[in-house]
């Protein structure tokens, strides 16, 4: 439900406000924006493989994203894992979101902060 709200807010606000979209987006907390990107099937699509937060119908191809701050005390390590996970494990099936430009650098930062909140 939060996710729906976030998406409605995101698209509603950017759609209506036109040129003022940037101000509108800022109304959403950074965490909510990170979550929207993570959940979006055409962006992070993390739920495809990971159980996380209140996401519905998650896949089980990757580990559940819980206790992330304990598992990744160093933010840079988590960021690299999302930017290019093949650095840590050449045979991983996780997409290299940064290296392959699936997400922008700014979007990756938002997702990293959101994931660290889980």
């Amino acid at each position: 439900m939060n996710r729906l709200l976030a998406l409605i807010l995101l698209f509603g606000v950017t759609g209506w406000m036109g040129t003022q979209a940037e101000t509108g987006e800022a109304d959403l907390s950074a965490l909510e924006r990170g979550k929207a990107i993570a959940f979006d099937r055409n962006a992070g699509n993390c739920l495809s493989c990971h159980m996380m937060d209140d996401g519905e119908l998650p896949g089980n191809s990757g580990p559940p994203l819980i206790q992330m701050q304990v598992r990744f005390p160093d933010r840079a390590v988590l960021r690299q894992q999302i930017w290019d996970p093949t650095i840590r494990n050449p045979q991983t099936v996780m997409p290299p979101y940064g290296k392959n430009l699936v997400l922008s650098e700014e979007e990756i930062d938002l997702v990293v902060d959101y994931v660290l909140s889980l």
């Binding site: 896949g59 089980n60 191809s61 997409p95 699936v102």
Partner: peptide, 22 residues
């Protein structure tokens, strides 16, 4: 592809697992 999968990533390595509900 941009998502960096081989056929074998899904149908060998992940065979039997789920992507979303599939």
């Amino acid at each position: 592809g941009q998502l960096n999968f081989a056929c074998s990533s899904c149908h060998v390595q992940l065979a039997g697992n789920r992507l979303r509900a599939e």
